[in-house]
C-alpha cells in the first residue's frame, strides 16, 4: 500500500515535471497526493495542513509558474520545505569542555530509552571517554538489571540502587548521587536512564522535573519510537512543556515505519533530532540526516536524484 502510494506520487511528480505550463489545478492535484503521502507517514494532520498551505503559497508564486521548468520547481518547493521543517543541522552530541556532561533520557514506556543509553555509552567509550550510566528507573521490573547488563557488555560502569517502592525523592537521590559520583571520579559523560512514563501522568512528569532540577543536565533527550502515530505531537509537546527538552532521538528507524512523527515532533518542539536508532544492538546508532528522513517520509527512494533528473 505504501509502495503503491509512492509510485503514484512519483507519477504525479513526473507528470508535473513534464508539463510546460502549470495551472493551479495541476498543483492542487499534486499537493493532494503529497498530503496523502504525509498522512500515511503519520505526520500530524495539523502539521500536514500547514505544510501544504505553505507549499501551495510558494508553488503558485510567479517565479515557479513562469519558470522554464515549473514541475521541477514545485518538486523542489516540496523538498525544500520538508527539509527546512526537519532542520538542516546534523546535530549529534558534543561533550561539555567541563566534564562531566550530564544527559537525561526521557520518553514514553518502551520507546527505547535504556537501549539508547547503552548506545550512547558505547559511542563515547569508543572515543576514549569515561561514561557512567545511572539506573534511574527503579520501578519497572528488571529495568536496573537491563541497564547493568548493557554496562557489563560494554565495560561501562553503572550506578544503581534498586528499591522496591521508590518515591520521587528516591529517584532524585539516585540521580544526584550518580552525578556526584561522576564528578568525583572524573567521568566525562553521565547518562540518566529514567523510567518510561505517560506525558499525562502529572506525578511522574513531576518526578522528571525534580530530577532535572537536582542534576542540571546539559541535555534532556526525548527518545521517541519511529512508529508513533498522530499522538506524537501531544506527547512531545508535553514532555517539552513540562520538562524542557534539548533534543530528540528517534528509535526503531530501521523498520518500514515512515517516521513522520519526527516531523511532528520537530514542528511542536523545534528541537534538533540528534540521533536515530537503527537496531537493537548497541552499535545501531546513527547521526540523523534530515534529507534522508525527508525522502523516507515522502516514500521516495531518492527524491534528490529525481529532482536532479528533472
Amino acid at each position: 500500500m505504501l509502495d503503491a502510494l509512492s509510485d503514484k506520487f512519483e507519477k504525479i511528480l513526473k507528470k508535473l515535471r513534464g508539463q510546460g505550463v502549470l495551472s493551479e489545478q495541476n498543483i492542487a492535484e499534486a499537493l493532494k497526493e503529497v498530503r496523502l503521502a504525509l498522512l500515511e507517514a503519520d505526520v500530524n494532520f495539523k502539521v500536514v495542513k500547514d505544510f501544504i498551505e505553505r507549499v501551495r503559497q510558494k508553488a503558485i508564486g510567479q517565479e515557479v509558474l513562469q519558470s522554464l521548468t515549473p514541475g521541477h520547481q514545485v518538486v523542489k518547493v516540496v523538498w525544500d520545505e520538508l527539509s527546512d521543517m526537519m532542520g538542516r543541522e546534523r546535530a549529534g552530541l558534543s561533550l561539555n569542555p567541563q566534564p562531566p556532561t550530564i544527559v537525561m533520557m526521557v520518553g514514553l514506556q518502551g520507546a527505547g530509552k535504556t537501549t539508547t543509553c547503552g548506545k550512547l555509552a558505547r559511542l563515547f567509550k569508543s572515543q576514549g571517554k569515561r561514561v557512567l550510566l545511572v539506573a534511574a528507573d527503579p520501578r519497572r521490573p528488571a529495568a536496573g538489571e537491563q541497564l547493568s547488563a548493557l554496562g557489563r557488555d560494554l565495560g561501562v560502569e553503572v550506578h544503581r540502587h534498586d528499591q522496591a517502592h521508590a518515591t520521587t525523592k528516591d529517584v532524585v537521590a539516585i540521580c544526584r548521587a550518580g552525578v556526584e559520583r561522576a564528578r568525583e571520579q572524573g567521568f566525562d559523560l553521565v547518562v540518566l536512564d529514567t523510567g518510561g512514563r505517560l506525558h499525562i501522568d502529572d506525578e511522574l512528569m513531576g518526578e522528571l522535573v525534580a530530577v532535572k532540577a537536582a542534576t542540571s543536565p546539559h541535555e534532556v533527550l526525548l527518545v521517541a519510537d519511529a512508529m508513533t502515530g498522530q499522538d506524537a505531537v501531544t506527547m512531545a509537546g508535553q514532555f517539552d512543556q513540562k520538562v524542557g527538552l534539548t533534543g530528540v532521538i528517534l528509535a526503531k528507524v530501521e523498520g518500514d515505519a515512515r517516521g513522520g512523527a519526527v516531523l511532528s515532533i520537530r514542528a511542536v518542539t523545534g528541537k534538533p533530532i540528534k540521533f536515530i536508532g537503527v537496531g537493537e544492538k548497541l552499535d545501531a546508532l546513527e547521526v540523523f540526516h534530515p534529507d534522508r528522513m525527508a525522502s523516507r517520509i515522502l516514500g521516495m527512494g531518492d527524491v534528490l536524484s529525481l529532482i536532479e533528473k528533472a
Partner: peptide
C-alpha cells in the same frame, strides 16, 4: 500492538 503507533501497525 502499541496503541501509540500509527499506520505502521497495519504493516506489523
Amino acid at each position: 500492538l502499541d496503541a501509540t503507533s500509527g499506520q505502521n501497525a497495519l504493516a506489523q
